[in-house]
C-alpha cells in the first residue's frame, strides 16, 4: 500500500530540522562574541624570572628543541637561539633583557587561563609545560626532570609566587657539562633586567 504523503517521513524531516535548529541556536549562544578576549588576571612575577629563564634556556631552549621559531614555547637565550641579529650562541654569554622578555611572554602566553589559575595558587600541573617537563604528558623531548627535584621546583616555585633561585642554581650546576665552573653559572649572579 502506498502511503499518502507518508506522515512518518514528514515526522522524520521535522525531527531532523528541529534538531538542526536547536544545534544552531545552542551554538549561537555558546560561541563567544568575535571580539572576546581573555584577560589574564594574575601573572607570575617577571622581576624574579631571570634564573628560571636560564634554566629553561639550558634544559629546553637548545637549538635542537625549543630554541627555534617553530615551537609554540619559543625560547631565546645564550644556549640556543639569539634574539638580536648580531648575537650568536654563547656571545654574549648571558641572556639579554630582550630575550628574558620574550621568554617570559612565551611562558605566560601559552595557556593564559591555566597560567592565571596557577599564579593565583592553583596546582602547577594544570600547565601543559609543567607536565611535559615531568614526562607525565607526551613530550617529544621525553621526561626532562622529575616532580619535586631542583629543576621542577625552580619552575613551579616561581609560578606559584615563591621564587627559589637557589633551586635554579642547583639544577643548573647539576646538569651543565662543566658544573659550577661552566661560564653560564655567572649569569645567575647578574641582576635581573629592569
Amino acid at each position: 500500500m502506498r502511503s499518502r504523503g507518508s506522515p512518518f517521513e514528514l515526522g522524520a524531516v521535522f525531527a531532523i530540522a528541529s534538531v538542526a535548529a536547536a544545534a544552531v541556536t545552542l551554538f549561537a549562544c555558546s560561541a563567544p562574541p568575535a571580539d572576546a578576549r581573555y584577560t589574564q588576571t594574575t601573572l607570575p612575577d617577571s622581576a624574579s624570572f631571570s634564573p628560571v629563564a636560564e634554566l629553561l634556556d639550558v634544559r629546553c631552549g637548545t637549538l635542537d628543541c625549543h630554541g627555534t621559531a617553530f615551537r609554540n614555547l619559543r625560547l631565546y637565550g645564550s644556549s640556543g637561539l639569539r634574539l638580536s641579529e648580531s648575537d650568536r650562541p654563547f656571545v654574549p654569554l648571558c641572556d639579554t633583557a630582550g630575550e628574558l622578555t620574550q621568554d617570559y611572554l612565551s611562558v605566560v602566553g601559552l595557556e593564559p587561563e591555566e597560567m592565571s589559575a596557577v599564579a593565583a595558587g592553583g596546582d602547577p600541573a594544570l600547565l601543559t609545560m609543567v607536565r611535559k617537563a615531568r614526562g607525565t604528558e607526551a613530550h617529544k623531548g621525553g621526561q626532562v626532570w622529575t616532580k619535586g627535584d631542583s629543576s621542577d621546583s625552580c619552575l613551579t616555585s616561581w609560578l606559584s609566587g615563591k621564587p627559589n633561585p637557589g633551586d635554579c642554581a642547583t639544577a643548573l650546576a647539576g646538569v651543565l657539562p662543566t658544573g659550577t665552573s661552566n661560564p653560564l653559572m655567572q649569569c645567575l649572579a647578574q641582576p635581573p633586567p629592569p
Binding site: 635542537d64 640556543g80 623531548g141 653560564l184
Partner: peptide, 16 residues
C-alpha cells in the same frame, strides 16, 4: 675543548 651546553635530540653535530 668542551661544548658548554647540552645536546637534547640531535645526533648530527652539523644539525646545529
Amino acid at each position: 675543548i668542551p661544548m658548554q651546553t647540552l645536546i637534547h635530540t640531535e645526533g648530527s653535530c652539523a644539525g646545529c
